[in-house]
Simulated assay, not measured.
Amino acid sequence: MKVYLVSLGAGILVGIIYALMQVRSPAPPAVALIGLLGMLIGEQVVPPIKRMMAGEPVTTAWFRTECVPKITGTPPPATLVARRDAPDDKAPESDRPAH
């Protein structure tokens, strides 16, 4: 919530500065928001390409944990993060490598 308030405050401050300088916003709000969405999506095009070039698979689960949270601003699903961050001896039985 704090991030949203800081973002709103920064936007209001820039709006005040624009008004004092008698400058119009460079883009209508809807156009600016669509542009920001495009930037977020564009940022997430590079990681899958890098992963494919390294010969690693791009799975739906990987995309959901690595890319979707960065686009939507929501945290990744806890179960997937817990599995990814768990050391081998703490990982669930299904995720442990066979010896």
Rank of each mutant, 00 (worst) to 15 (best):
K2P: 01
K2A: 11
V3S: 12
V3D: 15
Y4T: 09
Y4G: 07
L5C: 10
V6I: 15
V6T: 10
G9D: 06
A10S: 12
G11W: 13
G11K: 06
G11Y: 06
L13I: 08
V14I: 15
I16M: 14
I16C: 09
L20Y: 02
M21P: 00
V23A: 14
R24H: 11
R24C: 08
R24T: 12
R24Q: 14
S25K: 05
P26C: 09
P28Y: 09
P29V: 08
A30Y: 10
V31T: 14
A32I: 02
A32W: 01
L33R: 07
L33Q: 08
I34Q: 06
L36M: 12
L36S: 06
G38D: 05
M39F: 13
M39E: 06
L40Q: 06
L40K: 11
L40T: 05
I41A: 04
I41Y: 00
G42P: 05
Q44I: 00
V46A: 11
P48V: 04
P48S: 10
I49L: 14
K50P: 01
R51P: 04
A54C: 05
A54D: 11
G55Y: 09
E56K: 15
P57V: 13
V58W: 02
T59V: 01
T59E: 00
T59A: 01
T60G: 09
A61P: 00
W62P: 01
F63M: 07
R64P: 00
R64K: 10
T65P: 00
T65L: 10
T65F: 05
C67A: 14
C67R: 15
C67P: 00
P69D: 11
P69R: 04
P69Y: 10
K70N: 06
K70Y: 04
T72F: 03
T72A: 01
T74F: 09
T74P: 00
P75L: 08
P76E: 04
P77D: 13
P77S: 07
A78K: 07
V81E: 10
V81C: 03
A82H: 03
R83W: 02
R83E: 12
R84G: 03
D85F: 06
P87C: 04
D88K: 06
K90I: 00
K90P: 02
A91C: 08
E93C: 02
S94C: 07
D95P: 01
R96M: 07
A98R: 13
H99S: 15
H99M: 14
